[in-house]
């Protein structure tokens, strides 16, 4: 695997075009990372305007995805790439679609953050920044792995998804209990639950990117990845004050 500053620099026209596409996709990734961070910041600081700003900025990601797609199609049509080039192009296409999806989650978090800023503060919100940090560091490393064609880093990202899931489980439980305490908690808690779910999904998507990178570099699919979201099996929270 060729990585880092010693990696061969793009030589031909085709390589140059592929590198341009790669740049576009990683720029998209950078924007998505920033969107997640800003959305969570808006939530924690209860800054409704900032949340709406995140929602508006998502249009840029959509535009970039369309551009990436057009570029990939143009390369395929213009150069008739070989197997390796095609794998690279398909990966770029898929990854840009995933990043666009991640952007949608960030947008949704931003919108909900602005609704939550209008309501009373919710206690369990404190766990969100930690979740967000974990998920965006996964996305960051997945993108680094993509840019540097680093299969080991990709593998590392795939193994980290469980920690986001663990936090999600714990938040899910505490929110249920919190909602049972007082019906007034239900609206903001429901928003928070969706926000947490969005972050959990971002973690999953980062894992998807990592899987694609791993495949692109090694040509091998991984059979099973760890999964720890147990909330679908959850029935009734235990509570001491029924």
């Amino acid at each position: 695997m060729a990585t880092g500053p010693d990696a061969p620099r793009p030589s031909g026209r085709f390589d140059e075009e592929i590198d341009e596409l790669r740049t576009l996709v990683s720029e998209m990734g950078g924007l998505a990372e920033a969107q997640i961070a800003t959305a969570i910041d808006a939530l924690v600081r209860r800054d409704g305007d900032l949340g709406l700003h995140v929602a508006e900025a998502d249009a840029e990601l959509d535009r970039m995805e369309a551009e990436a797609e057009a570029k990939a199609v143009a390369i395929i049509a213009g150069t008739a790439p070989g197997a390796e080039g095609l794998r690279e192009l398909v990966a770029a296409l898929k990854i840009s679609a995933i990043i666009e999806r991640i952007g949608d989650y960030a947008k949704n978090i931003g919108k909900r953050a602005s609704s939550m800023a209008a309501a009373a503060p919710v206690q369990p919100v404190a766990i969100i920044p930690e979740m967000g940090r974990l998920a965006s560091s996964m996305l960051k490393d997945a993108l680094d792995a993509y840019v540097e064609r680093d299969a080991r880093l990709a593998l590392d990202v795939m193994m980290r998804d469980t920690s986001v899931d663990d936090l999600y489980n714990s938040l899910f439980r505490s929110l249920l209990t919190y909602m049972m305490e007082n019906p007034h908690h239900i609206t903001p808690s429901a928003h928070l639950l969706f926000i947490a779910k969005n972050i959990e999904r971002i973690g999953d998507h980062a894992t998807n990117i990592a899987e694609m990178v791993h495949f692109q570099v090694t040509g091998q699919h991984l059979v099973e990845r760890p999964k720890a979201d147990q909330t679908p099996l959850f029935i009734q929270p235990r509570t001491d004050n029924p």
Binding site: P5, D19, T23, G30, L143
Partner: peptide
């Protein structure tokens, strides 16, 4: 930014939209 930043395209390695 990691050891590979030197010599890289900053749009790929640094990525942050505000920096770009």
């Amino acid at each position: 930014f990691g050891p590979r930043v030197a010599g890289s395209d900053v749009r790929q390695s640094v990525r942050h939209p505000a920096v770009l």
